[in-house]
């Protein structure tokens, strides 16, 4: 083989390569259809492994995924409705992001599919009861790749999955670092209190029957229990959460046996509106913990993403600091 032949061959190869590169630039589909090739990544969630765009541009959030995604810096184009009480708890810029999105329905099982399709989403992120999701799974998947989490998924796993599927891992890692730092600080500052104190967390919701309250073992208290090691009452394994049991007000007296009571307050530190009837009772006012400054109002803006959890930890930190010495 002569040098000329080689050069010609090299030149041809270079020309072919250049042609291929140029043609690849012009038609990324590789199939000649003209569609854009999108880099993909695989996310594993409640509905198995789902291939989603690596950098989704048009995200739709359904059910409980809206606020956590926005909290991590995501900007969904379509959302299901978030209650006014929840919206009132988030920072103004997050609220603006929510309000800029198209509302697709009042809840996960009420999504307007035509409206959803018109948004041309490239990924749908959903958290709702599994039974509800199963009813709309095929319709959602026909519009865009759908990543689903059931209600039983732990909040950190949900935040991690959402960050990955929604490509907001940058926002997540900063929040995670801050979370670890706050947990370590509280543990260090209140180590003895945490070890020696029997806490109880009580709550009441808009849906609670009149004259009832609950010993709540879900929500932010799970973080105090799981991450900080605080001793709160917990349901037996396999049993329903304690918070599902509505207790009549006359059982408020039974809280006397606990060292410290935590109860829900709003951002200003006032008892949350549904809980206010409890603190107005004479029984509450007669509790030893209440009379000795050991009833702590704690603000819980949410417990399914790091932003609100960090605010909860701040509130808990402040509340624990007010505890009088035993």
């Amino acid at each position: 083989m002569t040098m000329t032949t080689l050069r010609r061959g090299t030149a041809l190869a270079a020309l072919l390569s250049a042609t291929l590169v140029l043609s690849a630039c012009g038609d990324n589909s590789g199939d000649g259809t003209g569609a854009t090739t999108v880099q993909k990544r695989t996310v594993t969630a409640g509905n198995g492994a789902v291939e989603v765009p690596a950098e989704p541009q048009r995200i739709v959030t359904i059910g409980n995924t809206t606020l956590p995604l926005i909290d991590m810096g995501g900007k969904p184009v379509g959302v299901t409705e978030v209650g006014a009480s929840d919206l009132g708890l988030i920072p103004a810029e997050q609220k603006a992001t929510y309000e800029a999105a198209t509302i697709l329905g009042s809840s996960g099982d009420q999504v307007d599919m035509e409206k959803l399709a018109a948004l041309k989403p490239d990924v749908i992120l959903a958290q709702m009861p599994k039974s509800e999701f199963e009813g709309i799974e095929k319709q959602l998947a026909s519009v865009a790749p759908t990543v689903f989490w059931g209600l039983d998924v732990e909040w950190k796993a949900l935040a991690g999955g959402l960050a990955e599927a929604g490509n907001v891992t940058g926002g997540l890692s900063g929040q995670k670092a801050e979370f670890e730092k706050k947990i370590a600080k509280i543990k260090e500052t209140y180590g003895k209190v945490i070890a020696d104190t029997e806490f109880v967390n009580v709550d009441r919701w808009e849906s609670s029957d009149p004259g009832t309250f609950s010993v709540a073992d879900f929500g932010c208290v799970e973080i105090a229990q799981g991450d900080l090691g605080m001793n709160f009452p917990k349901a037996a394994a396999g049993a329903d959460p304690l918070g599902w049991t509505a207790l009549p007000f006359e059982q408020i007296a039974g809280l006397s046996k606990y060292d410290v009571i935590t109860y829900p307050v709003d951002a200003e530190g006032k008892p949350k509106a549904p809980f206010a009837p409890v603190v107005e009772t004479n029984t509450w006012k007669a509790l030893p913990a209440v009379n000795s400054g050991r009833a702590l109002g704690v603000f819980c803006p949410g417990n399914n993403s790091y932003g609100p959890v960090l605010r909860y930890l701040d509130s808990l930190d402040t509340a624990l600091a007010t505890l009088p010495a035993k």
Binding site: G211, P248, F249, E250, A253, S256, T281, N282, T283, A286, L287
Partner: peptide, 13 residues
Amino acid sequence: SADIDQFAIRDYR
């Protein structure tokens, strides 16, 4: 009196 159990009687039952 201000006994906590007495409140349960007077305020609820």
